[in-house]
Design a protein around this nucleic acid. Structure first.
Lengths: 234, 234, 234, 234
DNA sequence: AATGAATGAGTATTCATTCAT
DNA sequence: AATGAATGAATACTCATTCAT
């Protein structure tokens, strides 16, 4: 019933209302008529802009998946591939061997920046992340949307990241344990922090500041642990 | 359409069909008529055994939540509380200080056993875990079901575990970072491994053996890290 | 709005209301809610008995098409085939040559009976005939339903009547002119008399008696003309 | 989806698209948006040229009905009325008595010409004829459009043809049987040949030539039969 | 314990039509 | 003459739930 009537055009308002309702009630339980009410538009207008309720979902999830995918790809192409080509980084299995501590420092700094940007993006778009997570638990079109990001770790030669890394360094190979750990203990927590952000914050009476710090501090622990196991200066 | 007609009574068949459908399609998208078809019973019979569709969900989630809660409580009452009373364990903030390495060894061994039992239980009941996770993302009755387990870490005096631990050791206090880390980097991954078990297994062509090993190996890494930070022998 | 509430079961009442509405408004323009009102049942009950609005149509048209088809087949198998085998009738092209006038009389008498039965059936079921005619003008599933009866005149060996006649008499062959004339000047008028029965009757202030007589008299003229051209006593 | 974008103006394209869609799907099932797509115009433009969807239908059917009516009227006024006045023709009941065989020949020749023109017109406009036939089966405004032609045979003094004939020859009277036979065995077949032209042609693998010949040959049989009964040379 | 029939309140989607430009 | 946006009223169909037996 909450009407959001400002100058942003109807299509945007429909998307906004959908994000709100899908994230709170779940896609299946959200009603198109509620979206219309909440967006302050006529129900039929929704079908003027979108083919179906599902089309709205696709639009929403598509945007987030492509953003995250392209951010990952960009990081690899901008930092990893050049360093491998320069000889400052050598990948052996899933170990990153740097030529010297300066190279390692450079890499770590940029990776930290990349992570922070990712965290910011996910937190800012946490309602959509929540929808993504919810839908990833249902069989069907978006059933494996959470995995699609992990597919960037597939040994599949159709995977652009694998191709880049493999082309840059023939020794590169994904390790089963690493992939598993990264997915369930790094990616899933990150996604979950975004998805459960508001509930956690409210339940524990925390500020946005607190949440951000807790998130980054936790990631730091995790990343440091991983680096201790995988980063080497030769 | 899959009919499961064996001697187990209708009520069990209804629950089984509900687990299957709720976990695959989500509670909201699952249909009572499908449950009936899949359980091989008349639709009206479902209302003989359950008050409503939601009542089935409550039954399902209630069982898993109470199991996990009581397992945690039992572990604390069986191992932590006596050791504190015996003086073999002293909790300072979120640090566990053992009287000697024998005490620490005893504790670690039993904690490992407890964890493994938990993992087994969650994996065996992974379809329900999936439902739990899915429902925890929706506002409403089960909206915070994932947090209910974490409530065992609440400073709330109504919380039996907090009461137990605090009664046993006045110095005991939950630490904000620890709670956050435990929830998002330990509990959530555990739950997620169960929830995404089948998809992950299929996508990466793994056996049940592989999955179990990967899970335990990952947990070991995590637990070891946590222990390094929190377990001390004085 | 007309409620027809008697003991005949709901399914029959739904079919009756559908016949009425489809024949008066056309399938596309008839509303499911009207059918429900007119049948005195809940709208949802319609979907308990029928898969869809179209399923009702299929049920209706299926019954009439199969009736007419089987009546034609029966006539041929009961009268034509035996007479050919007995040598009392010889079919040359589309000419019927009888062994003697007694054979011709026997045949004519039975054909007249068959026609009258057909006319009676079509007039009694004229509302469905009207639907059939209306739907035969729309592309789609029932688009060629009017032709399906004519298919009994197909030279297709898959056609049971052609097979019967051809098996009984090798000389038998459908003639292009005959088929065309029979379809448009015999079958179509018959169908149309049924379809436009009530309007014609009302517009010309005729009784059912008048209508029946006019129909049979007209058919007689037609049949006589055809016989003069096709029936021969050798 | 078929876009017909040529120089003919939008209004014509809308009418063309409507003919196509109404004749294939029926008026009720055809969508205004489809008409717009198929005509290559904006949906709103349709409402610039036509008051409503029904207005398009009225335009279409109006043109064909008035054409046929006026052709009939013209034939009567040009050939029948003058001949009656000249004394070359005398109408007794539904019998046409000619003064001599030359008069009959003259009349027959012109009637044949008139029929052929009518057939040509109906075949050329067969899509609209199909719509006419379809709509004549629905109650409502166009419900009795097929009868409107027959009204030219009404004893109604408001009927111009009846008036003309009656004024020319006081003995003239329509005969019930004649009217019935003419309507169902002459007019309806003619209309039906046009309406089912394409399906019949395709189903029987005929050429346009074949179709035309079959039509005319069939009509000839019919007309000859009628003449034998109704045309007399005194 | 079990079921076929029935239903009220929705549910996504459609459609002819209008409006503002 | 033309169009993108907007809408009220419907439209076929669904669904959880109940009833009668």
């Amino acid at each position: 019933m909450l009407r959001v009537l400002n100058k942003e055009d109807a299509r945007e308002r429909i998307l906004g209302a959908s994000i709100d309702l899908f994230s709170r009630k779940g896609f299946a339980a959200a009603r198109v008529s509620e979206i219309a009410d909440c967006a302050g538009v006529n129900k039929a207008l929704i079908y003027y802009y979108f083919k179906s309720k599902e089309d709205i979902l696709d639009t929403l999830l598509g945007s987030i998946i492509s953003h995250v995918s392209s951010a990952s790809t960009e990081f690899i192409d901008t930092y990893i591939v050049p360093m491998v080509k320069d000889g400052r980084l050598d990948i052996v299995g899933d170990r990153f061997e740097f030529s010297d501590s300066e190279a390692m420092g450079y890499f770590q700094a940029n990776m930290a920046k990349h992570y922070e940007k990712l965290v910011d993006y996910l937190l800012q778009n946490r309602a959509i992340v929540r929808i993504l997570m919810s839908e990833s638990l249902r069989s069907g079109k978006h059933g494996s949307s959470l995995f699609r990001v992990m597919e960037l770790m597939d040994k599949n030669p159709g995977n652009p990241i694998y191709r880049s890394l493999h082309a840059a360094d023939e020794d590169f190979e994904y390790n089963e344990d690493t992939v598993f750990f990264k997915f369930f203990f790094s990616w899933i927590p990150l996604i979950s922090i975004a998805a459960y952000y508001d509930e956690y914050k409210e339940k524990n009476l925390l500020s946005d500041e607190n949440m951000k710090e807790l998130t980054l501090r936790s990631l730091e622990i995790l990343v440091k642990g991983a680096q201790d196991r995988h980063f080497v200066v030769s």
